[in-house]
Amino acid sequence: MPFPPKSGYPIVVYNTIRGLLGLGAEITLFSINTAKDWVDIEDIYDPVFDSIQFYSHELDTGVNVWGALFNIFSNQSYNVSRYFDEDAGKLLENLLRENEFDIIQFEGLFVVPYLDIVKANSKAKLIYRAHNIVFDVWERLANTEMFTPRRRYLQFLARRLKAYETEQINRFHQVFAISEPDRHSILRFGCETALDVFPVALDFKNYVADPTKVSFPTLFHLGAMDWRPNKEGLEWFLDEVWPDIEKLTGELRFYIAGKNMPRHFFDYDSENLVVEGEVLDAMEFMNSKAIMIVPILSGSGMRVKILEGMAMGKCIIATTMAAEGIECEHGKDILIADTPDEFYRSILQCITHPTKWKEIGSNARKSVEKNYDISFIAERMFKVYNELLNA
């Protein structure tokens, strides 16, 4: 569900819809309303929502022990199959029979299980938008898992995902990658269909910074904590980096925020470290802090929160993995750190030279305005639609 657009996937889908509406597209959205991130449709008050035809189906996609066990003896990817439901399929089938569409765009791998239904009931051109390389995320998680039985199960899930992802990629008329590194990955595992890059789009009217409200010296981390790369990266930072950073100055504060915050993170709470959990206004939270920390060690795709931080003029210190796919330059509009020592030196530099982090934040805003504007990306996407229809 892209309403409300508060985290990565919803922001990508919401801004895609918003940009296309601005070009006069007529849009119908079919969403899986998962129990994990359930949204009350009656509580959606949004002009974008009011401008589209909307259909949804509620589904509990949570991990079931017995389901996971029986899946081992099937040939399906458990990560993906949990998102398919026969009732949702019937609703989608009726929708396709009653309407004629020019383009049907699948946003992410977890709606691809409905591809056969779409193919059987529509003559539309079909596009797959890869928000990341899903199996790559699980492969990297498996490689960092120390507990052998869990590592082997993660490897098993990654193999199943890879088989499914590579089999489906050539069943579409067009594929959109979210970043240039992801485009290369998709090509490597055998994509033979048309392939283009459409990154995250931002509406910069929503990112207005107020420097008078920034508290310094402050660090912050903001991200959904039910996404394993966020959780594991932050654990690494708190265990390996923060103890030395905390000693730099008694005035330094590190704020951690994000939905579904695991309980054990609150055990880190101290005078210098504030664990807030989910915040009501992410932009207000981000605006009030100086330096953004993104210590992601695994994953693929594009970190939307980094782009939002850049749009808010924040100095961001991130791992190479976290910044993967984003148009940025170390030392100019971002600081890259991959080891505890590199994080330490980058944070020390920002604290002792306040003009440094301000300069990087200012450059960051200019960079995202140049590369990730919603109008420019929507126009490019609309052009591809027309080319498909006229082919």
Rank of each mutant, 00 (worst) to 15 (best):
L307H: 09
V275P: 05
M286S: 14
L297Y: 06
E276D: 03
I291L: 10
L307M: 10
C315L: 10
G277F: 03
V294W: 00
G299P: 06
V274M: 10
E278W: 02
V304F: 01
E278K: 13
I293T: 05
I316K: 14
S300H: 02
N287A: 08
E284A: 05
S300V: 02
F285H: 09
L307A: 11
E278Q: 14
R303T: 11
I293F: 04
V304E: 00
G277V: 08
K314S: 04
A318C: 10
M283I: 11
N272Q: 15
M292W: 09
S288G: 13
E271K: 15
I306M: 10
G313H: 11
A290I: 08
F285V: 11
M286Q: 15
M286D: 07
K305Y: 06
D281W: 10
I291E: 02
S288L: 05
D281H: 11
A290M: 02
I293H: 01
L273K: 09
A318I: 14
N287F: 06
L273R: 06
C315V: 06
N272H: 13
E308W: 12
G301H: 01
V274T: 12
E284Y: 06
E276S: 14
G313I: 12
E308D: 10
E308F: 04
V275S: 14
M302V: 15
L307P: 03
K314V: 07
A282S: 15
V304L: 03
S270F: 03
I293L: 03
G277P: 02
L273E: 04
E271T: 15
S298N: 00
K305F: 07
L280Q: 15
